[in-house]
Simulated assay, not measured.
Amino acid sequence: RRFVIKPIDGSCGVNVFLVNCRDEYDHAIKSAGPNAMIQRYIASSSGRDLRVWTVGEHTVGCVMRHSSSSFRSNYAQGGSASVCALSDDAARMAVSAARCLGLEFAGVDLLFTPEGGFTVCEVNGNAGFRTLSAVDRHSPILRRLFEYITDRYVQ
């Protein structure tokens, strides 16, 4: 069986490995470091995912990331991105995942399941939005984030 190994504190798809055999496993564990985690590989989402940004109880941006050369779709790893519409189910899942972790701002990566739905790949509490800024210059993400902070914390 194939699976993914990555560091629990990683970012940008660095040291994320698709493991097919024992030699790849040994290399991946050594490279990912002592705090590695193993994830199920979802072939139906290979090379594509959704990055959804959440602020409070709302989604504020979404891009589809894709790569034709890697199972990883990260923009930082050479993947491409395009703005995409977000289904209600995907939006609820992203907000719920961020809420479960107590995050007021997050980047939630959703993978495509074989059944046509989504599953959470990871939740980033320190999510950048370079990808969204690159493909949508009119994104409201900064305005929505500052409005949230002002409404919630500034008296």
Rank of each mutant, 00 (worst) to 15 (best):
A85N: 11
A134M: 06
R92H: 14
S44C: 10
V19P: 02
T150G: 12
Y25C: 06
C12A: 12
E115A: 10
L145C: 14
L18Q: 08
L111N: 03
R51F: 00
D9W: 12
L132I: 03
N15D: 13
Y25I: 00
G47Q: 06
S139C: 10
S70N: 15
A90L: 00
A127G: 07
V16K: 01
V60E: 04
S67G: 10
F129Q: 09
F71M: 10
A127W: 03
C21V: 00
L50P: 07
R1F: 08
A98M: 14
G61S: 04
R1Y: 15
I38K: 10
D151P: 03
A97T: 07
A97C: 10
C12S: 10
V55A: 09
T131E: 07
M37Y: 00
S45H: 07
A32D: 03
C21M: 06
N20C: 06
V108Y: 02
F3G: 11
D23G: 03
A90F: 04
I38R: 02
T150H: 13
F105A: 01
R22A: 07
I141G: 09
H138L: 12
S133K: 09
S11M: 14
G125C: 03
V14W: 05
A36F: 08
S70M: 09
G78K: 08
V154G: 08
C121E: 06
P140W: 14
S69I: 11
H138W: 05
A127D: 11
S69L: 06
G56P: 07
K30R: 13
L110V: 07
M93Y: 15
L18S: 06
G61W: 04
I42Q: 03
T150V: 13
D26N: 08
G107D: 04
L103H: 00
S70Q: 13
F129S: 10
R92C: 12
C84N: 03
V4R: 01
I42R: 01
R22S: 06
S44R: 07
A28S: 08
M37C: 04
T119P: 01
T131C: 14
T131S: 04
A85V: 08
L142A: 05
V120D: 15
V16R: 00
R152Y: 05
G117T: 04
R130H: 12
T54V: 11
R22L: 15
G125V: 11
S69W: 11
N15W: 02
R130Y: 04
P140D: 07
F105P: 02
F112T: 03
A106H: 06
